[in-house]
Design a protein around this nucleic acid. Structure first.
Lengths: 195, 195
DNA sequence: TTGACATATTCAACAAGTTGAGTATAGACT
DNA sequence: AGTCTATACTCAACTTGTTGAATATGTCAA
């Protein structure tokens, strides 16, 4: 039911077509939700069958017709119900952590490579968020709606920073291990790699 | 294919039954992967069909028979291939962020409630991880395998701490808004809620 | 002795997410 | 003239994840 509620939330803001919703997902919401257009269209059909939405067909010149969806009273009510119900955290499924967990069974270089690759991805994503922050959220001139939007971007920023910091922890650990194992290492830095 | 590789990883360590794997998922891996036993059994069957695993039936006294799965050469090879292939970050789907995004459309108290509920959950999870840390990872006496395991716990600890910090950011923002809106507020603390 | 709990696995149905193709119009670029 | 992109939607097949029930044995405690 989760995607349905994300869609309801967008339609709370303004009536939209499936295509519009898809774009808003990509632009605004991609930091914490991803949905393919196929998924969105399918969900919209289901939600209309449930009576949460209605649509009217809008003829456009130069573009294909579109179905403009808007909330029904039942939809608005369902949205309110959802809003006050507790939200569960996303189940996390992280390949990289599985790899690190098994780190003792592979060459240290393999662990390092895996972590480095992911570190790079998070660094890029962080940069992207930083750009968005600079471009779309002027420190002293945000509307109320923008302020909330900014709070969600803050989550994205934190998330990426936290990943980077953890990757660095792992890399530091690997460095210390390597130093301790190599004959030319300083002898007294091997213990207590993390605390 | 992701669950399959998590299972391969566990079997790299030691041959196990579906039930054993389920328990290790719950105990060790639950911080970053969740799988129901049904899912695991289904996946094991599929993996055996692909030739990654083989099993032998072990008769036990006082307990039902079990199927002890172990890696084949092909399975080990596939695991190696996966290990060196880049890992994508999990797609995140966070209801709570959708709620905060729409914060301007509901009463501030509703946002606060939603955030407080989640904050509580993360605080509890953090405490749980802290206990695990204290009980299972003695600072100076970890095996190599434990050290890697500890690194994954570190990810969990960080993750929960980061959530708490963000929740507090949102709550602070809401407090400042409330103070700015109420007549008895200090007049000059309203601007620049975050930076 | 009855019921809860741990061990150990299977089947069925469904919901959610992914992949890929297909249909259409229209403007812009080459 | 042909291709690319943007708009706008649909259908089908598949994989993955969730929920609930069913089966079977043995131990431990109320």
């Amino acid at each position: 039911m989760a995607l349905a509620h994300a869609i309801l939330t967008i339609l709370t803001d303004t009536p939209s077509s499936g295509y519009d919703i898809g774009k808003r997902f990509e632009e605004q919401v991609s930091c914490f939700w991803k949905a393919s257009s196929q998924q969105i269209y399918r969900e919209l059909t289901k939600m209309e069958q449930q009576g949460w939405l209605q649509h009217e067909v809008i003829a456009q010149t130069g573009k294909p017709d579109k179905k403009l969806y808007s909330l029904t009273a039942a939809g608005r009510q369902e949205w309110q119900r959802w809003y006050t119900a507790p939200t569960e955290p996303t189940p996390i499924r992280e390949d990289l952590l599985v790899k690190v967990l098994a780190g003792a069974h592979v060459a240290p270089e393999q662990v390092r490579q895996a972590v480095l690759l992911r570190r790079h991805r998070h660094a890029q994503q962080l940069q992207l968020y930083r750009r968005t922050e600079a471009e779309e959220f002027p420190p002293n001139a945000m509307t109320r709606s923008q302020q909330f939007s900014y709070l969600t971007l803050r989550r994205g920023l934190r998330y990426e920073q936290d990943w980077l910091a953890w990757c660095d922890e792992v890399l530091t650990f690997l460095d210390e291990q390597a130093a301790a194992d190599s004959p030319s290492a300083l002898p007294d830095t091997s213990a207590l790699p993390l605390q």
